[in-house]
Design a binder for these strands. Sequence first.
DNA 1: TTAGATGCAAATCATTTGCAATGAA
DNA 2: TTCATTGCAAATGATTTGCATCTAA
Lengths: 157, 157
Amino acid sequence: MTKEDKIGLNYLRMRNIRKNQNGIKARPLTSQRQLLLDLIKRAGGHINAKGLYNRAVRKNKSISLATIYRNLRLFKELGLIEERRLGEIYCSYEMKESPGHQHLVCKGCGRVIEFDSPLLRKLVDELQHDHGFNLTKVELYMEGYCRECAEEASDIV
Amino acid sequence: MTKEDKIGLNYLRMRNIRKNQNGIKARPLTSQRQLLLDLIKRAGGHINAKGLYNRAVRKNKSISLATIYRNLRLFKELGLIEERRLGEIYCSYEMKESPGHQHLVCKGCGRVIEFDSPLLRKLVDELQHDHGFNLTKVELYMEGYCRECAEEASDIV
DNA sequence: TTAGATGCAAATCATTTGCAATGAA
DNA sequence: TTCATTGCAAATGATTTGCATCTAA
């Protein structure tokens, strides 16, 4: 077990304790959960249920899709991971530790560019003030065509 | 048939002609399509497939869900409507004519606030330059708790 | 020991599709 | 007339759930 793994597990335990104080029951730390957290972390972002399952079965032949879904939901509830919908269907998960970043998707080649912008933070502050909202999630999703794909398309039209 | 309806129909026809020039086949204008466009327009935004179906059956008892889905897809392809995913499940449609606006969803009461911000436009321009992207869609989605719900929650914790 | 997790299979929900009948142009 | 659309029912794909068994604490 690497140092990275341990951080993941401790983080889960810590969260459990916190949640327990609020009346939520303790959650045992199973080998499946360790595996899944590890895989999500290694993926570094943008992994979905089926992809996670495909990687998980390599390490644990008998793991089931139901377990993937149950744990993705649990991790989300515990605040360990973040769920995103990119494009129209693709639903992916990533560890929450990563700093807020936004997505730019090319409809031509499917490339996903992550970026961060100070302007967006300014905008968030503005909204928190204007509407008195306590924001927990900010997602800026943009799609279009990257330079290369835009040029290709112009040949066709 | 009201003036509003006619505008919708002409818009569809116009789009069809345009598309035809690009090699896409002509699409007949059925009563179901007229009804659906009318309902989407009346809804003014944030209507999903099932909701649309529920309203449609009142006017046309035999209309089927398959027709709703098929036409939502068609309208989307023709660029008549815009698809959005609000929150984790809710998928809604609205007429494309409405100016670009973004969504702020309260996880407490479910309220959806639409807003527009000049800062966001600035950000978009910035990205178009920096990445050479030709953007076709910009969606800023934010969720959290509105003032009232945030106050309620603070009583519990 | 025991509450909660797991694997499996069946169930559910949203969306799509095949096909014969219908309708718009 | 003719090709696309429609309604229906069946198919699909993603996610959830019931249940008997297993396992972390």
